[in-house]
Amino acid sequence: MTGVSIKRGRRALPVLLGAGVLIIAFASLLVGSTWLTPGEVLGGLFASGEDINAIIVREIRLPRVLLGLMAGASLGFSGAALQGLLRNPLADPGVIGVSASAGLGAVFAIYFGLSSVFLLAVPLLAMTGALAATLVLFVLASRDASILTLILAGIGINGLAVALTSLVMNFAPTPFSLLDMVMWLLGSLANRSFTDIALAGPFMILGWTLMAGVGQGLSALSLGEETAQTLGVDLRRLRLQVILGTAISVGAAVAVCGTIGFIGLVVPHIMRHFFGHDPRRILLPSALGGAVFLSLADMLTRIPLSGGELRLGVVTAFVGSPVFLWIVIRTREAMR
């Protein structure tokens, strides 16, 4: 049997993923409009001088790379946790309506021209949108609402946010602001600074912290809600942790990066392929995998194109959907 070798491989995989995150992060620091050698990047990172390389690496590339890693980890982690909670491999952080609400906030900020007055208006309003949606979900989840109620509420919130976003875009004051809105919604990590990290970072970390201890509960849920309860799982608490953790971390990620789809859906699937279906065992790998996936996608957006910048959400969807289809076809036997 191959059982032993699989086990050994599985133990090594988180280490490999961790190493992958570091390698991708460094590679990502190398890619940009100015060519820097690996030595120059390292020098720029760690040398004490204030030369041009240091400014490029520390002020321009580092925040972008860090934000990509954090946002990717938020999306991957949330996707895995949400799929575990809903016991549905098709769940995605998008279904609870938080991403769309963040998008609505951003579009509002652009509509009223707040972004030209105050630089952080877009992420701040996006965050407000995400938090408003989170609050609705929180009220529902703490009232002991069923999973189905939460999902339907999420679909409702999502639909409303998308409708309002369309409305705002419909009455966009100028073609330029409409373009701004569309571009924001397509997602990007370009020109992000440590201010964005300071704004969204604490929320992402708060979200991760909320979801940190949910592994066992999610594994127990494999046997259904009643059996999980008889194994000592506090269902209401578990729901609150996952829904709030997802809403807060994904809301914060979307607020500074724009809408980025498919990572929360696809990454847990890829991880299941390597780590098995136990929900607990794919949480950390999905977070690391999400960080790698988003960073790779971000590197692709930095390929210079004549038509302008390739947007991040476009790349993740382009890479994510074929991967998703491939996985669905390969695993349809196992899921039956």
Partner: peptide, 13 residues
């Protein structure tokens, strides 16, 4: 301990 009737198994563990 509880052994339910016809309990679902949601993931192929």
């Amino acid at each position: 301990a509880y052994a339910p009737q016809g309990a679902p198994i949601h993931w192929p563990l």
